[in-house]
Design a protein around this nucleic acid. Structure first.
Lengths: 211, 211
DNA sequence: TAGATTGTTAATCGATTAACAATC
DNA sequence: TAGATTGTTAATCGATTAACAATC
């Protein structure tokens, strides 16, 4: 029963959530599928369809109660639950991520940092000590961590992933430019920014090519 | 004729390119669709289908010439052409992006930085001066820039986008947590990391829920 | 009640994939 | 020639959307 929501729909749920939070801030008590859709560039039918996978809380003639729906989506996405993460590869990207307010807002706590550069071991970033990657197994025995963030160069990524998985991590956010080979029960979210950059490049070419 | 490649296929092209570059480094002269597919977790039929939108360079019984195909994809994505970009919102994320090697490798040059914080104006990041956002129109008259990168907070993003568009920018990489309202001829690539974070959170919940 | 909007069915649209003739 | 792999057709699968009865 748990997973018959289509992947494209699932990926839109966070957008609805983001928009609902904004509606909350504006003091809007009810939103309808047309309003949500227009704010996000999505047809209202699709909004209703997507939400129907999760809730049944819309009121015909009225719309969705902002607070109730926000809460439902928050629960569905698990944002209300505290989740621990570790990060490996302490470079500029790691620095940006660790200061990113989103983690805290979405219930994710980056509690451990790792690197393999002797220069960095023992130093801190955002008040968190940087450990040697070889210590990850030992340290993960002490805390239950579900999320691993990989911001290492390509060459280290696969071995880091394996160490994380050995330590009990089940979800990986992979910023490195490599396809990780992982067991099927591990959730891998790939985020190689170069891939997006290439699409951006393509868009520039095609802009000038036509219309 | 130019755009009948399906969006999902287009999004996979950069992955093929990345993998081909790796094959080049390994000195592999030919790759076949099965190899490419296995490296990326994609069925070989889909690899051939995707590539067929762009090239017709595979040789039955042999596969694809690594160098030739790399070159074809590079051209298709426009990576070989120099492209100029500006960035608005000089925070931690901007710092990570500007030091990201990908831009250079993919032919993108971030040539101008903008912010609205008086503290930052006149200072430099990676040897580039930070200008006030209000100067963007003036400065864009001097250089032809096609890409705008928005790493500002949500509240400034829409107005920044408008200024970029007024300055002749046609492709926007939007890291801010807001849906930009832009004319239809502007290409917008949204990259709110919170959206991915929410999916990651959801994966953690569903991991523990079942199997 | 009249008007508005939901949730869902069925039709449409589009992407994936199996299968195989063509060809190196 | 025999074996391997392409490019493409047609079948399948899955997502989007139009339409509308149900309902607030």
């Amino acid at each position: 029963m748990s997973n018959q929501i289509p992947t494209p729909s699932l990926k839109r749920i966070p957008m609805y959530y983001r928009e609902l939070k904004r509606a909350m801030e504006n003091g809007t008590n009810f939103v309808n599928s047309t309003q949500l859709g227009e704010a996000l560039g999505i047809p209202s039918t699709q909004v209703r369809k997507d939400l129907s996978y999760i809730s049944e809380q819309g009121r015909p003639g009225v719309g969705y109660n902002t607070a109730t729906l926000t809460n439902t989506l928050e629960k569905y996405l698990g944002l209300h639950l505290p989740k621990k993460a570790v990060l490996a590869g302490v470079g500029n990207l790691a620095n940006a991520l660790i200061h990113f307010p989103g983690f805290h807002l979405y219930g994710i706590d980056i509690c451990l940092l790792f690197d393999n550069d002797p220069e960095k071991i023992g130093k801190t970033l955002a008040d968190k000590e940087i450990h040697h990657i070889d210590e990850i197994g030992l340290l993960l025995k002490k805390v239950k961590v579900s999320i691993g963030i990989i911001t290492t160069p390509a060459v280290s990524a696969q071995s880091v992933a394996q160490k994380m998985i050995a330590g009990g991590i089940t979800s990986i956010w992979n910023f490195s430019p490599i396809t990780l080979l992982c067991p099927g029960n591990i959730f891998v979210l790939n985020q190689d920014l170069s891939m997006e950059m290439a699409i951006l490049s393509h868009s520039v070419i095609n802009m000038t090519n036509l219309d």
